[in-house]
Amino acid sequence: MNKKLRLIFLLCLLFLPTGCLHYVELGELEVVENISIDYQEDTFQIIATLIEKKEEDLTRKIIKGKGSSIEEAMEKIKTKENKKLYIAHLNLLILTPNAVEQQLESILYYFLENSESRNDFSVALAEDITMMENAENTIDLSKKIQIVEEDLGTSKTCYFEDLLKDLLEKKRSYLPFLTKQEEQITVEGIYLLEKEKLIEHLTGEDVILFNFLHNNIHTTSWKGNKVLSNTTTIRYQNQKIKIAIESILTEEKKNYADELKKAIEEMFSTYQAKNIDIFDFAHAIKIGDYAYFKDHQDTYLQEITLQIEINTAANNQGERGIDFHE
């Protein structure tokens, strides 16, 4: 009898504390792919892209909600569909300039405190979230940003945790910018964010230079030179920022290094005058000489000079390994 009681008791233990009581069927979950948040006139407007499986295909569905807080707006979305919103598969969070400048902290904390959120999604900026109302346009947006970053170098993916880290450490970050062109959503450079204010929109070559100095170039094209890969190292020594760039090009051209060096120096000078550490040299200074950084946190940018060394190598085989010179 004693053994039987123990067995029954252990079986009860197996089922009760493991969460089976509150199990939710897959069909009762609404899997959220993207969330777009705008903040206008003290109201949060949310557009969520939900993934639905119909027979063998995945389709997208758009749903909207409004509320005086994010929780209220998300709750209104839930009520409409009568299903539980599941944000563990969130790919992209899109914010408008108003949402970023007025409610960034509350938005970030919503996802931070939500135990279902895995915080592995990327974040982007869009002028207007109404472009997200067309479900077809929202397919694989985060991948689009990644492709532009890797193939062209004219954007940079910003992940939620990287955004948090940058804002906490440097009070400065960046967000890829989405815009609508001829009914299609395109990626147009990045926006710089400083102390929760959008300060500068970088496009084209400026973003490529930004990516060069953040060691984020995969492949790109710089002044007619096709760059296949690149490594940038930045070190600090005696108020000098030593930048070493090693690029592999399809064809070695003499003017590449000179033009790149000139462009980096010009861009640095422009933002040095605005007191914006565009290339994040603070990180190198912190690692190289923390004592100096601690004493010169507000003035280091005006005191440092650049020492740039660019080395190139040609890869005549091109991207696909075919030798065009045969």
Binding site: L16, P17, T18, G19, L21, H22, S115
Partner: peptide
């Protein structure tokens, strides 16, 4: 916090 958020503390 990490595993079962829906079960009561006492249980």
């Amino acid at each position: 916090y990490n595993v079962v958020s829906t079960i009561s503390y006492y249980l």
